[in-house]
Amino acid sequence: MPPPQSTPLPPPEQLRAALARDGFVRIPHAFSPEDLARFRTAAQHAAARARAGQWPFVRTVPKQFPPWPVSEATTEGIWGMQHLLHPSMADEDRRVFAESYFGDTMVAAVTALLDCKRGDLVMELYNMLVCPPKDFALRWHRDDIGPDVPPDIELERLQEPMMHAQWNLALYPDSSLVVVPGSHRRSRTEKERNADPFEDNMPGQMTACMEPGDIVFYNNNILHRGVYDRKSERMTLHGTMGLQGADPARSRNILQHGIGDWAGECDFSDLPGEMATLGREMQGRLIGMGRGKDVGFSQQE
């Protein structure tokens, strides 16, 4: 049986309804086998460099949140690498990553989900999640709401309007993301608050299974975790795009990763057609958020 070709995006209203209801939505076969082949080649080059200790922006085992001790990349291993659009990325690989980020498929999906125009978008993070050298799991969390926040404040934060889109784009089969559907619309239950951080059977949990070329968009404050199997190849592009006018909490969530230190050095002039213009415009809006010195971190561990 031939591999599936890319498929048209579902109607915007359908995408928004699913994301609002469940806290995540999967777009199957969003990219063609030809696109996937290019993305995989760039990802393999980048991952090999990071695992060899030749890339300073990595997520090291067993730490879940930034900052990560880069010195442990070759001893403990990595479960992700940061800043795929960084100007020191190998030129061809950086161009491929940029095309997957600023290209029509991703931008069309993001603008549909956020019900916005291309001119509203802000360049944010683009990273890659990879299989570590040992089995590894993240604890249950919301990306920007800490575990000790009381229920009333938690609910207040969850009711804030969506000012960004966050996604996983699978280059290989991926069953790492585990979510509790609908948990982005309510405070945690007492059971969720008191559960073991690595609970394997959280009530209502499900695995967001992905095939190569699938994109899963999810609300970053849905209750979720990652479970990584060292025996399964994993290269999943993990990105975010924002909207102009984000609040300070959103700015901290992005700038805490150090992107403000190098965003101004990016040159997207080698991208094809309107992609180059869009890249420069989105880059400018990110730079307008500031460099992020002393913003602190969204989570502590």
Rank of each mutant, 00 (worst) to 15 (best):
A195D: 02
A208K: 09
N219V: 06
P161G: 08
R186Y: 03
A208E: 02
P212M: 04
R225M: 05
D144I: 12
E192H: 13
L223K: 02
V178P: 11
T207S: 10
F217K: 13
E190Q: 13
S232T: 13
T207W: 00
Q205D: 05
S183Q: 03
S183F: 06
N201Y: 02
D144R: 15
L158D: 04
P151H: 06
R142M: 06
P173S: 12
L177H: 08
G213Q: 00
E199N: 15
W140T: 03
V179E: 00
N219F: 01
R193G: 02
A208R: 13
T207Y: 03
T207R: 09
D152L: 07
D152C: 03
G213E: 00
V178T: 14
P150D: 06
S176W: 00
R185Q: 13
P203N: 11
W167C: 09
R142L: 00
S176G: 14
G213T: 02
S187H: 10
D174G: 13
W167N: 10
D143Y: 03
E199L: 06
H224E: 01
S232C: 14
P212R: 07
D152Q: 12
S183L: 11
D148I: 04
R186G: 04
E199M: 11
R186N: 06
R225S: 08
S175H: 05
R193H: 10
M162D: 07
E156Q: 15
Q159K: 15
S176L: 03
E190S: 11
V149I: 12
R193V: 02
D174A: 15
G213M: 00
R188N: 12
F217M: 04
R188G: 09
R142A: 12
R139Q: 07
W167E: 03
S187D: 14
P173H: 11
G226D: 02
A165L: 05
S232H: 09
E156M: 14
P150M: 03
P203F: 02
E156T: 15
Y172W: 07
Q166I: 01
N201D: 07
P203S: 10
E190W: 15
N201K: 07
N168K: 15
D143A: 14
A137E: 10
E211D: 13
D200F: 03
I153R: 13
A165R: 12
R185F: 04
A170F: 06
R193C: 00
P181E: 00
E211K: 10
M163C: 10
W167I: 08
E199S: 12
P212H: 03
E156V: 15
K191L: 08
K231H: 07
M162I: 09
N219D: 09
P173F: 05
S232N: 13
A165G: 14
G146K: 11
G226T: 10
S175Y: 00
M206R: 15
E190D: 09
S175I: 06
V149Y: 04
E211N: 11
S183W: 01
I215K: 01
L158E: 01
R193M: 05
M163E: 12
P147N: 06
R230K: 14
H141I: 10
N220T: 10
L177G: 03
L138I: 05
E160C: 07
I222W: 01
D144F: 12
F198W: 09
I145A: 11
R157N: 00
P212D: 05
M162C: 04
A165E: 07
R193T: 00
L177A: 08
